[in-house]
Structure formats: structure tokens, C-alpha cells
Design a protein around this nucleic acid. Structure first.
Lengths: 198, 198
DNA sequence: TGACTGACAGATATTGAAATCTGTCATCGA
DNA sequence: TCGATGACAGATTTCAATATCTGTCAGTCA
């Protein structure tokens, strides 16, 4: 039966993603996951208290994979405006790449995320914190001008929502997408940068 | 039968909205509409070629009701920045008011709009045109600074999407909503306004 | 002892037959 | 003549019986 490999939550999650990819969200059952792991479905319940919590964990893993490269940019040093722009572009491209390369899996993750709204909330809060970090740096560097860093961070995050929120993924096929993102980012950076004399 | 009132598309649409409100989107049938009008359902098909086209017409009516007050603001004269802000606030509040006062009907309109994507596209184009008009005025008045009026109009429309696109209506319950809209609009206006010396 | 199993009850999903609805059109009546 | 009607075929939805799944737990085995 069990091929001498220990059953860990991590291994269950990997196989679950596989099963979701093969069967689709609607058809994938806990029994399928257990079968793919070559254990009884009772064993899966030893690590996850419910199917919902298993789904939530898959959603969380996906959100964490999105966050990882962004955290790096937020921690970097260097001019804040370029970093803010790179951070926003990385966020948008990450989502747009998934939907483009694997639309079915994107739809699956989207549904899972909708169910795991607490995890999504935490994910968003984490992202806002990163924008706060970059903008704070910018204020220290004298290149950003704002009286409320957190409010500005949220405003910039909200303003770009159309290009990273899955609800708008249908509109990412637009051939003018890149130009529109450029225009939006330029506008936002102008809105937060310290006016240069001249 | 017919109470001496002529059967017009307009009257059908009014009654259809009524039927949708009473029965809900899923249950409302063409037969229900015909019954409410006291005619046979064949008569309804004399004015609308299909149920889909009837639904589309209801969606269009709703979108037009949203547009109407905005068109007025776009046509007004006066300082462009204040007008742009008022236009955006009116757009956001119109949507937020519907979802707050009649969430079921809002959900109905939302589904109808999703089906009538051509009508929605035209609606959006019309709205962008209005923003273009306001920004053009601003450029003439010397208060707005942009090299591409249409790109700026789209950027501003996109940037506020979170506060007027129905996909985000769940997030409009946030008690800090007003403050967040204020911060966003301030940022956007700063981004497009001609820098003042000082 | 402690991870795993598999039988079980209740919840959920599937299925196919029956009912209803959509869209058409020959016919009616003003 | 021309809008309205209502019977009809095919598409869609409903509903209830049936099958499958979720989550539990007493019992097994290393």
C-alpha cells in the first residue's frame, strides 16, 4: 500500500493539487485524493479536519506562491518609485501569467480562494503591508509625498485592482493591456511622487 | 383581455422588471411576463425576438439609468477637477446605493449585465467618453496635464473600478469605504493635475 | 501506542422520467 | 390587413429515487 513514504500534510497538498488539475474542482473528492496517495480516505482526515480545510490549505499555498517574489521586492533597497512600479508589475504579471497559461487551474484556485475568504483577507493585508514598506522607504528617501502612508498604500493597491484581481481576468486578453497598465502606473506614481521643481 | 392599452416594448420592459423583482431572475419566465401583461406569450415575442433579447433590453435600461445623471455632469461647465471628482463620486454612489437598498435586484441586474456583455461594453465606452470630455475641458482650462487624454480617462476609470464595478460590491460594506474613496480620488487628481508652483 | 483502516450514518450529487418553458406558425377576429 | 392567439415541437427545468461522498469511530496491526 503506502510506498514507505510518510504521509505529511505537505504531500497531501501536492497530490490534492494534482487531483484538482486532473479531475477538476467539481469532481475531485477526498476519496480521489486518498486513492492517489494510496491510503484510505480516513488517513487524509487525520491531517485535515474537513474537506473544506483541505481546500483552504490549497488556496493558502497558492496565495503564498504569489506573495513570495513580492516580499523580496518589498525588502530590497534602492529607489522606491522603481521598486513600487516593479512590485505592482510583478503582482499583475503573476496573475495574468497563470490565467493565460493554465486557465482551468486559475478558475479552480479562484473558486478555492473565494471559499477561503479569511485566507484571502490575510493575503491582502500582507500585500498592503509590503506596499506600506516601499512607500515608507520612498518618504524617507524624499521621493514620495504623503500624509498617511497606509491610506496611500491601500489607494494604490485598490487603483490597480483591475489588473490583479481575478474578477477582472476576462479583461486581461485586451491587446492594449500593457499600454493601459503603463498609463495607470504613470498616473499613480505622479500622484504620490514629490513634485520636482522645473 | 388587453385593457385597451397598447402593447409597447416600453410597457413590456416595465412589467418585466416587476416580474423579475417579484419572482427573481431564475423563476421569471416569458409566460409570467405575458400573464402580468394579460396577453399571450406569443405577443411578447412580437416585440422581442427571444427571451435573451428581452433580458438584454432590461439590462440596457438599467445601464442607461446609471448613465443619465453622469452625462449631465460631463456636459456641465465649471472647473474640471471638481467636475471629475463629482462625476466619479456619483458613479460610485449610484452603484453602492442600489446594492445597499435592493441587493436582490442588484444581483439580478448584475447577472443580466453579464449576459449582455455587448451592452456593457457600449456602456463603458460611453462612460469613458464622458471622462474624456471632462479631462479635455481640464486641459483647456490648464488645470490638467496629460499627453493622451483618452489613456488618462481610461486609467482613471480603471483605477476607480473597485468602487463602481459590481464584482467588488461585497467590499462596499467596509465602514472605511468613504475614507478610502477620498484617498484614492485625491491620489488620482494629484496625478493628473498640473503641478502648482509653491 | 499510535497511525491506519474500513464500515457506517447522514449529507450531497447524479440520473432519468415527467413537467414546464421557449420559440414558431397557421389561424382567428377586428 | 395586421396584431393577437394558442397549439405544438424541441429545449430546459424539476423532482424523486438512487448512488456517491463526507466525516466518524471502533477496531487492527506494526
Amino acid at each position: 500500500m503506502n510506498e514507505a513514504v510518510v504521509l505529511t500534510p505537505e504531500r497531501i497538498l501536492e497530490v490534492t493539487e494534482d487531483v484538482l488539475r486532473r479531475f477538476g474542482l467539481a469532481k475531485a473528492t477526498v476519496v480521489d485524493v486518498a486513492r492517489a496517495l494510496d491510503v484510505s480516505h480516513g488517513s487524509v482526515y487525520r491531517h485535515f479536519p474537513s474537506k473544506a480545510s483541505l481546500r483552504e490549505a490549497v488556496a493558502k499555498r497558492w496565495l503564498d506562491r504569489i506573495s513570495a517574489p513580492l516580499t523580496q521586492i518589498a525588502k530590497d533597497s534602492g529607489p522606491a518609485p522603481a521598486r513600487l512600479e516593479r512590485w505592482l508589475r510583478t503582482l499583475c504579471t503573476a496573475k495574468q501569467k497563470t490565467v493565460c497559461e493554465d486557465p482551468e487551474m486559475f478558475a479552480t484556485y479562484l473558486t478555492l480562494a473565494r471559499e477561503a475568504c479569511a485566507a484571502v483577507r490575510a493575503h491582502k493585508e500582507g500585500l498592503i503591508d509590503q506596499v506600506v514598506a516601499i512607500i515608507s522607504d520612498g518618504v524617507k528617501q524624499g521621493v514620495f509625498d504623503t500624509s498617511d502612508v497606509r491610506a496611500s498604500a491601500r489607494a494604490i493597491f485598490d487603483a490597480t485592482v483591475r489588473y490583479h484581481h481575478p474578477a477582472h481576468s476576462e479583461e486581461w486578453k485586451d491587446p492594449e493591456l500593457a499600454a493601459r497598465v503603463d498609463a495607470l502606473l504613470a498616473l499613480l506614481l505622479r500622484g504620490i511622487e514629490t513634485p520636482r521643481r522645473g
